[in-house]
Nucleic acid binder design. Structure first.
Lengths: 347, 347
DNA sequence: TTGTACGCGTTATCAA
DNA sequence: TTGATAACGCGTACAA
């Protein structure tokens, strides 16, 4: 099979009777090279169909202009938005993204991290899997001073920066809103508290209960994967309770579980919000489509992603000091919709 | 700033008083090397904290074990599912994904392709932007025999394979279903016909009309980006028609536009499906959440992605001949839901 | 079974 | 402003 040889800077050099070093410099618009030769080099590169070999360059310069991204799953609205935001930022600054998913499995996350390291990413953006216990698998990065940025599901670590929102505050506001609507028995559908986001949402919920003299009960706290199935299961659980033990509101740590819980309860004849009010988290598109629309917290994946990637790149370019800022907190506002409005519009 | 030097195979070689070549072989479990030395090498690598340098390896072996992926957008349910499917396949075979989005812009797609080429991806998976006119920007890949696989939004090209569904047939079935329900004026909300998927869906729709003696009219064919806004705009257009000119059904080329069109029409007081029946495409999660549930076509992003990536990798490993199969067509079945059921269940 | 020696395509150093 | 030359870390004929 005929394989055309690759065009290298040597070909250009020979073609122009100059040295490869000059070509290398000219290609990168090094001001050291005269404008005339620079143009000659560019033209020749065009004519010969030269394409730079990123590998050789990386090998020599020890920079890949590639960022590693590890996420729990690729196919959630929040995550794909975050990736889109990162891609935008990365693309603007000439970086590429190499993306892997842990599928909520700490072991796979470990392997992903090792691969990223071997591929010599310039930096790592990571949101932890639900059962990751520690970050020993990131040690190689820390040792070699390869910057790591946590986003969304973060980890306390004083040589990294975290990008996220104030989950405690948001959960507090959601819960307070439900209480303001007259709800007294609010069930919390939460995620694995190993992850800060779920622990903090739980804490915010509990604090709001406490501040309003409502007691917390284990019976009103369900933990799970926050999947469609988890939402449906929660509904079944609720329906199995004696009517006087049933919650009058549900605060779910994400919209998916909230929506599927709503659907199942509605199918069983319960009215929302009259019988049970609802609030979720993330402002997923389905929250605007379900009837009644779901009260939720606006959590902009693209902002998180864009911010995290931009911050990382600035650090790589020496524009900012990674360790100066330990946490970046973005806004996440409550979005009140019909599913939680027990009091008819107090006009 | 103290930078620890990288551990290389030379360090291992020196440490064990053997040659670097032996280390290189041992690390890859080359059976040529005695089992004892192989073990010694592995242990030493462990002890010294050796991490292979993928770049040097790539430079030498001319393989990156990296696949390029270019998609119109990252943050749609279909695409993120496709990416998830690809990541699964890639990960299983030791490949990585480097992902970029064209944002429906041919120019950005061009730049993305050039970057991927320079990074020497082993193969390319691409779904074209809505306004891409030709594939000249992929010529470098074809010239160097780097395999390109089109998925979803494909392009006729006899040195590549395409992975998708039978859009014509699916659209035909959707339209026929609406006709079977008694609909006579079916509006089609379509995408840019530059892309095969939208052209074929349009064709299937027209053929179904024709086969059932319904006339096609330009008035009943809207083209746009199939976004939320496009759905809302379509609703306004419908409401502005004289009641006797209004369609009695809408077949949208995706679920997003269908759902936002439904919401706007419902807000204006129209009943679905009684006044207007609806059908979409993709089986997006929102189709199961909207009331009434949306009739749609099941289009599995993850299968498409997994199939495309697996096929590409098999080709790279020499297991299959890329050019033997020009198109892989996956199933896409009609999912009938309440939004299109004009005839009350004919029990 | 192992070692020697060279090349992959680029960038960095030093000299001119 | 340019050129010569040596790395970068690994893989592989070829020799031993």
């Amino acid at each position: 099979m005929l394989e055309e040889r690759e065009i290298t800077i040597y070909d250009i050099a020979k073609y122009l009777n100059i040295s490869a070093a000059t070509v290398s410099r000219g290609l990168k618009n090094n001001p050291m090279i005269s404008k005339a030769t620079r143009k000659k080099i560019m033209d020749a590169a065009q004519v010969l169909g030269y394409q730079s070999n990123a590998f050789a360059s990386n090998l020599r310069s020890r920079q890949t202009h590639t960022l590693g991204v590890i996420v729990p799953r690729l196919n959630s609205y929040f995550m794909s938005s975050a990736l889109a935001g990162m891609e935008n930022a990365a693309n603007r600054y000439g970086y590429n993204l190499i993306i892997a998913q842990s599928l909520e499995d700490a072991e796979k996350e470990k392997r992903n991290a090792a691969t990223m390291f071997n591929k010599r990413v310039d930096g790592l953006l990571i949101s932890l899997s639900s059962n990751t216990q520690n970050i020993n698998h990131l040690e190689p990065f820390f040792k070699r001073k390869i910057p790591v940025i946590f986003f969304d599901r973060v980890y306390p670590h004083n040589e990294s920066t975290s990008v996220g929102i104030n989950n405690f505050e948001a959960a507090y506001q959601v819960t307070k809103h439900l209480i303001d609507q007259g709800c007294k028995r609010i069930l919390h559908l939460g995620g694995n508290v190993l992850r800060n986001v779920y622990q903090e949402r739980l804490n915010g919920y509990r604090k709001a209960l406490q501040d309003h003299h409502l007691s917390f009960s284990d019976k009103l706290h369900l933990t799970g994967p926050l999947s469609e199935q988890a939402g449906t299961d929660a509904a079944r659980h609720i329906l199995e309770l004696a009517p006087n033990k049933r919650p009058d509101a549900v605060f779910s740590a994400n919209d998916t579980a909230a929506v599927y819980c709503m659907l199942a309860l509605q199918a069983a004849g319960l009215r929302i919000p009259e019988d049970i009010a609802f609030a979720g988290f993330n402002n997923d598109p389905i929250s605007k489509v379900i009837a009644p629309n779901l009260t939720t917290v606006e959590y902009h994946g693209d902002s998180i992603g864009h911010t995290a990637a931009t911050y990382l790149i600035n650090h790589l370019k020496g524009i900012s000091d990674l360790y100066a800022t330990n946490a970046i907190t973005l806004r996440a506002d409550l979005v009140i919709r019909a599913s939680s409005l027990k009091n008819k519009n107090p006009e």
